[in-house]
Design a protein around this nucleic acid. Structure first.
Lengths: 150, 150
DNA sequence: TTACCAATGTTGGTTCAACCAACATAGAAC
DNA sequence: GTTCTATGTTGGTTGAACCAACATTGGTAA
């Protein structure tokens, strides 16, 4: 369902055993945990910023267009998010010397620090989400999800 | 992550094995399949309408406020969705004889028919979503999701 | 009874993520 | 040299989820 409320009262039988419904509820919980985590210790950063920092750390400097393609974020949203990251000294934007219009984005040392902090927050969120499962069940869950998305 | 794009190019390692990420990707796929199903054979109806019809079928006539509480849909959105359902003769709204302001909503025979059609569409969507899994894995997946949401 | 409070249905908003269009400007292709 | 495509940016639009206020009604307390 293209709707993910956090607090339905009771659920019709036809919904509550359907995988699409369960996935949407799991997503609602997961997203709520992440939003709470970012709000509590993200210093105003959100998922967009985290994904951009992660991409920069993993693959090194990139143009904004490439960043957008890699992260699946629209060019215009990349621009806005990078402006906020730059204002916090977490990334650097400099003109590509070989391409007049292109800008090369680099993560700064402070950006790496913040990314590390966000990483531990996100890791704790995984534990919170998977709390009801045993370690073996968690591995199974991740494995099934991965297969589902191949 | 509070974002569910359908087409990221490549995914940073730190994301792609994290349950929250996998769940958000699974939700993106699930929601896209459902939206496509409703668009193809929903005759202009969407998830909201389906949930309301399902609640009415399952628990019988109810006031709008109760419907909202049961489905987790805001009162104002319930009003709008019911207006559309009523225009299609899928529900009936009549004043509660015992409560001046309250309205009792009932699903009509046509509403039951449409609900049955939507049910088969939604069932087919389950198969599409779970296609990569074997029957045993599907049972496991549903079981783990249910446990996760307890 | 009267006065207050809570609930109902409705209207008309706001917020926020996702997405789209248009632009000036730069390289690439032909 | 002209056309075509890519880039970064601005300024939108859409749609789901919420929220606020209102008139109206029932219930509660005094």
């Amino acid at each position: 369902m293209p709707a993910h409320p956090v607090q339905p009262g009771r659920t019709p039988d036809r919904l509550k055993s359907r995988p699409t419904w369960l996935v949407s509820r799991a997503y609602a919980r997961s997203a709520a945990l992440l939003v709470a985590g970012f709000e509590a210790e993200g210093n105003g950063l959100r998922g967009y910023h985290y994904r951009l920092l992660a991409a920069l750390e993993q693959w090194g400097p990139a143009s904004q267009a490439d960043l957008g393609r890699d992260t699946g974020i629209d060019r215009s949203d990349v621009t806005a998010a990078l402006t906020e990251l730059e204002a916090r000294d977490l990334v650097e934007r400099r003109a590509d010397p070989e391409h007049g219009r292109r800008k090369i984005v680099t993560i700064t040392p402070r950006g790496l620090d913040v990314l590390a902090d966000l990483d531990t927050m996100v890791d704790r969120t995984q534990d919170a989400l998977l709390a009801p499962l045993t370690p073996a069940q968690r591995r199974q869950f991740v494995s099934l999800l991965s297969r589902l998305l191949d």
